Computed example of a mutant assay.
Amino acid sequence: MIKKAKLHPRNQHLNGYDFERLVADLPELEAFTVFNPAGKTTIDFQDPDAVRMLNRALLKSHYNIDFWELPANYLCPPIPGRVDYIHFLADLLAENNNREIPHGKHINVLDIGTGASLVYPLIGQREYGWSFTGVDVDAGAIKSARKICQLNKLSIDIKHQTVPSNIFQGVIDPRDFFHLSMCNPPFHASKEKAKEGTQRKWRNLGKGHSQKLNFGGQNAELWYPGGEIAFIARMIEQSVDFAERCLWFTTLVSKKSNLQPISRILRSAKVADYKVVEMAQGQKTSRFVAWSFFKKRKRSSVLADARDEISS
């Protein structure tokens, strides 16, 4: 077992990877296993093929996903951190739901930039039974996500955003209502900065100069003009037009220094409430920001309506 510190208490990977279980459920993983200096089974996390195989095993063993494959060079997400985001979102809903986490298909979640991996809908549907809509601007990612849905016989709505400058327009229909939106925004400000980041990571891993990254990533997944802060600012500004169509808007924020300008933008948008939720995986700290245009009492009422719908 490989210990991972400080994951969410409900995270199935809180106590590390059980490679005996994973290999039993996906025998192909065994060819990628190695022993670390302490003599424990692990994989070479610098090997993108090993990382993909580990993800396949995790999704199969813990979330009953039989088919999961990605096209070459698309982002291969580290599963435990993605799982944490889902669980903390569940806690966010529970705050206005008598501290009870809402389960079931009547909770609707919008995943902005769902990617070829479709990882958030896969995990969120299995853990809480929520209904998901996954959106992406990349046609290849959409094709991959639909294939994962089809071969696993999953009911997940996949939408292609054909206007990259729009985040919610063309995605949220007039009759739609989402209890949550979520997003893992592009980090870098340009294609060149993304390449520099890739090369820096390889140097830090002792691999020298390389254009490849063990977790992959296409342009739309890695960079956006102006970087993360520009993307999130656009998201906040556009969320105003959909204030009544989503209970909580949320997005990951990788750079802590971006929190202060994001707070200013949120105040300018006149949101009713916003908060920053910190998450930690080992030595790494991550976070997401959440904002709502609904007052606290109204948020509780919306979730009470969802409870009534489930019970009926």
Rank of each mutant, 00 (worst) to 15 (best):
V240T: 14
I167A: 11
A230L: 07
A38D: 13
S239P: 11
I236M: 02
L92V: 04
K201A: 15
I86R: 02
K195F: 08
R234H: 06
A116S: 13
A90N: 10
G129T: 12
K284T: 15
E196S: 09
P27A: 12
P48I: 03
H160W: 15
N96G: 04
A194G: 04
A304K: 14
K256F: 12
E228Y: 00
F35G: 07
D176W: 06
E30G: 07
H13K: 03
N64W: 00
I262K: 10
H8F: 09
Y224V: 10
L222M: 11
Y128L: 10
V23D: 11
E192Y: 05
Q199K: 12
M235I: 10
F67K: 02
N15D: 15
A145S: 12
S311R: 13
K193G: 12
S311H: 00
I265T: 14
E100S: 08
Y128P: 01
A233F: 03
K284Q: 15
K40P: 00
E100W: 00
S300A: 14
R99Y: 05
S286T: 14
K40S: 03
P174L: 09
S286H: 13
H87R: 06
L303I: 13
V51S: 04
E95W: 02
A233C: 03
S239C: 05
M235N: 06
W68H: 08
F294V: 14
L7Y: 11
V163K: 11
P9F: 11
Q238T: 03
G282N: 08
I236V: 15
N166T: 05
R245H: 14
F19S: 01
T114M: 15
P71Y: 02
G104L: 10
K159E: 09
L122H: 03
F294W: 05
H160F: 14
K40C: 01
I232G: 01
K60T: 02
W68G: 02
I43V: 05
T133H: 10
G81M: 05
L247A: 11
N55R: 03
F249H: 07
P261Q: 10
N219C: 06
K295E: 15
F178S: 06
E95H: 09
L70K: 05
S131K: 13
T42L: 09
A230Y: 00
A230H: 01
R99A: 08
Y85S: 07
L92C: 07
G81T: 02
Q199N: 05
A290I: 12
V289A: 12
S155F: 07
E28A: 15
L92I: 05
K60L: 04
I123G: 08
A94V: 10
F293L: 11
G39N: 03
S155G: 05
F132W: 13
S312I: 04
A280P: 13
K212T: 10
N152Q: 04
V277G: 05
V83Q: 11
Y120L: 15
N55T: 02
F19H: 03
I310A: 13
W68D: 02
D49N: 11
